[in-house]
Design a protein around this nucleic acid. Structure first.
Length: 897
RNA sequence: GGGAGCUUAGCUCAGCUGGUUCAGAGCAUCUGCCUUACAAGCAGAGGGUCACUGGUUCGAACCCAGUAGUUCCCA
């Protein structure tokens, strides 16, 4: 079979994904194995895949695939979130295009449209995840508004209400005038904007005196019910007991005194509008002020305002400023920067607004969620988020859980016509319950609360509800999979979602929902801006996959994304990922092309090469396992990358590559070939979690395999203890034959340097690789054994004739590489040049300096007294090495003079 | 306004208990090579006052204090 020169992901990806599905490799059912579980952070059902999802789900897939290979019963539960506000907004907009207003529809009609729309377009995102290679158990796909999950939400609401944890009340909430609903504190984004500070004069009642206040919101003047100043403010002390006249509306309001006021800000006098500002509201409660709500839910002036009725608040701001100016009561305006809250979902400016809402008390219920993160029962990765988490949990406010929307779980609260409220599942039940308080209640008098619950009030149950933990609290699934293992999500929703899941977990299972929370960064563009649809700076992930292959994009994303760090996304890393795919593909082509001859005896270089790579592979595997266990994903990937590209391709394959004679590759011996296949299979396995498609493809081509013999379910390589390798080592000048992993690697580092030296000389002299060159090496006695071990590798890789000698002759016309342990010389036709001598002198000077430093350190009594013995020994060794090197350099130089 | 974090090569980041396996990796850059696995490649090279200023220490990228810049969280 002819293999193409470059790897083409297009012909393999869909094929293998279908194959995996066909053999149900993603499927998980409880069995005797240990489970490894991840629940997906459910994307909005209306969503399309963006780069954040890509990163997030790549990490989850890597974890799931690795654990699956390690023998865990890996279960990744997918699903979508009904996303009340976002989805409703989308449906409203769509209906509007068709000329239908939401207000003209009944709740039932609207929901019918919404469900139709969901069935048609919802879940596109899950299909897109397949392209990425996500190995979710699709049979377990859930939706937060499906029947069972909604039932759980309702049950939880009723339960918490009965426990006294849920209450209803008028509070100041964050009102989204566009979505026409309350939103939680967490859904408000504060942005700094340029604003104007208006200085407005209010007349003092029955006096020819004025008081000037400063405000950024003159449109709320109509709702003013007091003026507030600091009790210590000398400027205003005489106004005690006086009233001020609110301009335009001419209402007399009291002047109150409160230490809340910042005397430095503006004029030190504040207009108090309890209906439209949380701080003013608190002042109002304290001083028993009247509340006049002058802004309607849609952000336009209400009838209570009396003026400008029906006009938008921002239009009124300008208008009122103009009117005040004409009245001579606008003293001046100043440009300032202040923070304004925006709705996360609709980007409308949030209006603080008093309204009747449902709340969940957070103080008691959130306690275990705080404790168990602080005590390490649940780990946040990276750890730095624990601080933020702690801060938030210690200052947590009651959670406003009602939303004035239709798309979502309708609140199971029922009201009669006499102001009684009951909370229960059905209307029939409600009537029964209401009869206790109101015996004459009629069915038509009983109305259900119009509002739905916050979306997060359903997604906080996700790790329990996806396993039907509410429907069957003792079910097989929930008992087996819960608590789950890892959660991978963005830090933005640490409070929205993660904290609340932990709360629900302890409240309803008495157990944490997961053990580790891996917080990914935010994907940003090159300029550091967050990727967003409105900026148009987000590449389409599906297009990226088509361009670089899913494996390439996965590698690209992970290469630059340590946990918790933002990811400045640059397509070039995907290119690197694609190039890596190609590298592996070509290594495969090379191996595949070899002809095996069972009669050939393994040569010495190949023998050493397999010994070395075996050791290297095990060492790196150990390293990779360790990095995974610390969730250092990009480092695990980099380690894998270097193992494959550098150690396997650049060194190992070069060491064992059969020679080319007469335009034809010689056959390879069976022993080396078999070892190579085993190595290759192992590194394919290690690569698989990162690059599932190409590894599966090569896995299937490298050997004849059965349908189900797939790498996705192959066993993760075990770290084998490396013990039957004997390399020379020296202790206290005595030659000791001992087993040592460390030596084979540090030895090889010196050999690599020697090889580099020979290559450089050949390159500089324009000697082709095929052309042989004579190299002389003068090793110290101790190093000779080591050199003998590696000599065939050196010969093979550099194509040289290596002569090992002890004649301490100074070579005047040689290129040399001197390290004091094993010096290398290559003869040259012309004599030593000045540059060569200078280079040697430079080297000598540096080594001398280094030695001086070590000697100084060793002659420092305090150092000797304080340093650990190992450190001391190490310093002594450094001294000896440096002295040997200096001696060799000096001899060399002496010969040149 | 309160709190937390960050600042190491052109870029993205490692650097654990202070000590040449401490100044590292990948990418990018530069210079040679179309050498029969791979130019999506190979070989080689050059990049850093570890933000700044002081302190502790025999010894500081690392510990302490302050300054600047920056990001996030809360109000």
């Amino acid at each position: 079979m002819e293999l193409p020169k470059t790897y083409d992901p297009k012909i393999t990806e869909d094929k293998w994904y279908a194959h995996w599905l066909k053999h149900k490799f993603f499927k998980s059912t409880p069995d005797e194995r240990v489970p490894y579980t991840i629940v997906i952070p459910p994307p909005n059902v209306t969503g399309v895949l963006h780069m954040g999802h890509m990163l997030n789900n790549t990490i989850q897939d890597v974890l799931i695939r690795m654990k699956r290979m390690q023998g865990f019963n890996a279960c990744w539960v997918p699903g979508t979130d009904h996303a009340s506000i976002a989805t409703e907004a989308k449906v409203v907009a769509l209906l509007k295009e068709k000329g239908i207003n939401k207000s003209d529809l009944t709740r039932e009609e609207f929901l019918k449209y919404a469900w139709e729309w969901k069935e048609k377009y919802g879940g596109i995102i899950l299909k897109q995840l397949e392209k990425l290679g996500a190995s979710c158990d699709w049979d377990r796909t859930r939706f937060t508004m499906e029947e069972d999950l909604s039932a759980a939400v309702i049950d939880v609401f009723i339960d918490l209400y009965n426990k006294g944890q849920i209450y209803r009340g008028v509070r100041m909430v964050n009102w989204d005038p566009q979505g026409l609903t309350a939103v939680s504190d967490e859904e408000v984004i504060h942005k700094e904007v340029n604003s104007k500070l208006f200085y407005v004069k209010y007349k003092i009642e029955d006096a020819e005196e004025w008081i000037t206040i400063a405000t950024t919101r003159p449109e709320t003047i109509l709702g003013d019910t007091a003026i507030c100043v600091h009790p210590d403010d000398e400027r205003y002390k005489h106004l005690k007991g006086k009233k001020a006249i609110v301009p335009i509306i001419n209402r007399a309001v009291p002047i109150i005194f409160d230490t809340y006021i910042d005397m430095e800000f503006g004029t030190g006098a504040l207009k108090v509008t309890p209906a439209h500002d949380i701080n003013d509201y608190n002042l109002g409660v304290k001083h028993k002020l009247e509340v006049i709500d002058t802004i309607a839910p849609d952000g336009k002036m209400s009838a209570a305002a009396q003026f400008y009725i029906g006009e938008d608040r921002f239009a009124v701001r300008k208008k009122i400023a103009k009117d005040l100016e004409e009245m001579g009561q606008l003293l001046k305006t100043e440009d300032i920067k202040n923070k304004v809250g925006y709705s996360e979902r609709t980007n409308a400016v949030i209006e603080p607004r008093l309204s009747m809402q449902w709340f969940l008390k957070m103080d008691i219920i959130s306690k275990p969620a705080l404790d168990n993160v602080l005590n390490g029962e649940i780990k946040l990765i990276p750890e730095k988020f624990t601080n933020t988490y702690k801060h938030w949990m210690e200052n947590v406010h009651d959670w406003c859980i009602s939303r004035q929307l239709w798309w979502g779980q309708q609140i199971p609260a029922w009201y009669d016509n006499k102001g009684n409220t009951v909370v229960c599942k059905t209307k029939t039940e409600a009537i029964e319950k209401l009869k206790v308080k109101n015996p004459d209640v009629k069915s038509e008098d009983v109305k259900q609360d119009e509002d739905v619950l916050d979306t997060w009030f359903s997604s906080w149950l996700w790790p329990i509800s996806v396993f039907d933990g509410f429907k069957e609290p003792n079910g097989k699934d929930i008992n087996y999979y819960y608590p789950t293992n890892d959660l991978v999500t963005a830090p933005e929703i640490l409070f929205f979602w993660v904290a609340r899941m932990i709360i629900a977990g302890y409240e309803y299972r008495g157990q944490k929902p997961f053990t580790n929370v891996y917080l990914t960064g935010i994907v940003r563009d090159k300029q550091g801006r967050k990727m967003s649809k409105s900026l148009g700076n987000s590449p389409d992930p599906i297009e990226l996959i088509e361009k670089y292959g899913a494996d390439g994009v996965r590698v690209g994303m992970l290469l630059c994304s340590p946990a918790g760090n933002d990811l400045p996304f640059d397509e070039s890393t995907c290119e690197q990922g694609r190039n890596f795919s190609n590298k592996i593909w070509n290594a495969f082509r090379l191996i595949k092309g070899w002809e095996v001859d069972a009669n050939i005896v393994q040569n010495e270089a190949s023998k050493i090469a397999t010994e070395w790579f075996d050791a290297k592979l095990n060492e790196q595997l150990n390293q990779i396992n360790d990095l995974y266990s610390k969730y250092r994903m990009s480092e695990a990937l980099m380690c894998t990358y270097k193992l494959v590209w550098d150690d396997f391709c650049a060194w190992y394959l070069e060491m064992i590559k059969p020679e080319f004679v007469d335009g034809k590759s010689l056959p390879i011996d069976k022993e080396t070939y078999d070892a190579t296949i085993i190595f290759f299979e192992k590194i394919l396995k290690v690569m698989h979690p990162f690059m599932p498609f190409i590894t599966e493809e090569i896995w299937s081509l490298i050997k004849v395999r059965g349908e189900k013999d797939c790498i996705i379910v192959a066993e993760w390589p075990k770290v084998e203890i490396f013990k039957d390798r004997i390399v020379p080592n020296f202790k206290n000048d005595l030659l000791i034959w001992e087993t040592s992993l460390k030596n084979i690697f540090s030895d090889f580092e010196i050999i690599k340097e020697a090889i580099k030296f020979i290559r450089t000389v050949k390159l500089r002299r324009n000697i082709k690789h095929q052309e042989n060159i004579e190299v002389i090496s003068l090793p110290l006695l101790q190093e000779e054994i080591s050199l003998n071990y590696w000599k065939n590798i050196i010969k093979k890789i550099t194509n040289c004739n290596l002569i090992i000698t002890h004649e301490g002759l100074i070579k005047t016309n040689y290129d040399c590489w001197i390290n004091g342990k094993m010096d290398f010389f290559i003869a040259k036709k012309d004599a030593k040049s000045i540059e060569d001598i200078e280079k040697l002198i430079g080297e000598l000077r540096y080594t001398q300096g280094f030695l001086d430093m070590v000697v100084k350190k060793l002659s420092n009594e305090k150092f000797i007294a304080n340093a650990k013995p190992e450190l001391l020994a190490n310093e002594q060794k450094k001294q000896a090495d440096a002295e040997a090197k200096i001696k060799a350099l000096e001899e060399q130089l002496a010969g040149l003079k």
